[in-house]
């Protein structure tokens, strides 16, 4: 019984290896470096290097790899400082009754299904970004030298990088905040008192605890949040706008992620009777699983077990 989780992981990995074997050999390192994902001429199966494949097929995931890392990285960039402020104000500036209510609320947020965030993003956030915020960003920040390199560009829709990063950050803020409030709670009373005695304000105490005393737990929380963001599928699929065959051209451009691409391509993969498209999706799943497992393992290693109890990466 105790070995069940280990067996399940080994089972999933071997299953994915079994399916991705043809793709690994057919695509080689091209898989990681090419921006082209083309399933080939439908219905026209040929033999190539000993594998059945639709003619002209070529599978590269660079666009989706970049999209996943970019959106998750930006989400972390937003979520980390936000969680920092939220957890310090909850811990130090609120009466304890309100504090416990707020903490349960934050934990509730972590349980909202991602399709709800996606729905909200499409109907509410997208029009606001498209009609007001992004045109303003492009016109004002985009015209400043140097900053313009990042914020310049034409706004053709509200779907894409910015909305994906915002939604992902909203989804991971509860995870990171919980870890942070937890570690603030656990700080030994003597440490707090001794900093106070040196004349520090509450804010300075909180900042010290999170950025120095409990640094490892803060980074661990961040990595857990990152792990969640890397694998998030539905919400991003709904707001990413979709991108293929090209890398994002500006901050206002559309984007695609590994998880969203796997989910969106499975049905048309069945149309490829050579099975190579399914194989390529399996290889992509393997890589996605590897990337999020690494984030999750690093998070757990840095943070230690206690601080993260109850927060599973999904």
């Amino acid at each position: 019984m105790a070995l069940t989780p280990v067996l399940i992981i080994i089972g999933i990995v071997s299953f994915l290896f079994f399916y991705s074997y043809p793709s690994i050999f057919y695509n080689g390192s091209n898989f990681l470096t090419s921006i082209t994902w083309y399933t080939g001429l439908q219905g026209n199966v040929v033999q190539s290097h000993g594998f059945s494949v639709q003619s002209g097929a070529s599978f590269g995931i660079l666009v989706f790899l970049v999209g996943t890392l970019l959106t998750s990285g930006l989400a972390l960039l937003i979520a980390l400082p936000a969680s920092f402020f939220i957890s310090i104000s909850v811990e130090f500036y609120l009466p304890s009754r309100i504090k416990s209510i707020l903490i349960s609320f934050i934990e509730l947020f972590a349980g909202i299904p991602s399709v709800v965030y996606g729905f909200w993003g499409v109907l509410f956030l997208e029009p606001i970004l498209y009609n007001y915020i992004e045109p303003w960003m492009s016109a004002s920040l985009g015209s400043i030298p140097v900053l313009g390199l990042v914020f310049g560009g034409q706004v053709t829709s509200g779907y894409g990088i910015i909305i994906s990063a915002i939604i992902l950050s909203i989804m991971i803020i509860p995870i990171i905040t919980s870890v942070m409030t937890n570690s603030l709670d656990k700080a030994p009373k003597e440490v707090r008192e001794s900093i106070y005695s040196m004349g520090a304000t509450k804010w300075e105490v909180g900042r010290y605890l999170l950025s120095s005393f409990h640094k490892s737990s803060t980074w661990g929380g961040a990595m857990l949040g990152l792990g969640r963001a890397l694998g998030e599928t539905m919400a991003v699929w709904m707001v990413a706008g979709g991108l293929q065959g090209a890398l994002p051209s500006s901050l206002y451009g559309t984007i695609n992620t590994m998880a969203a691409w796997i989910a969106s391509q499975l049905d048309s993969a069945y149309m490829d009777s050579s099975g190579m498209t399914i194989s390529a999706l399996a290889e992509l799943s393997l890589i996605l699983m590897g990337v999020s497992l690494i984030a999750s393992v690093i998070g757990r290693r840095i943070a230690g077990r206690g601080a993260l109890r109850g927060y599973q990466n999904d």
Binding site: T39, Q154, S157, G242, S268
Partner: peptide
Amino acid sequence: GTSASIFPAVSGEL
């Protein structure tokens, strides 16, 4: 075909 991978990349597409 049925796959989205048919479409070439076009600037601004959604």
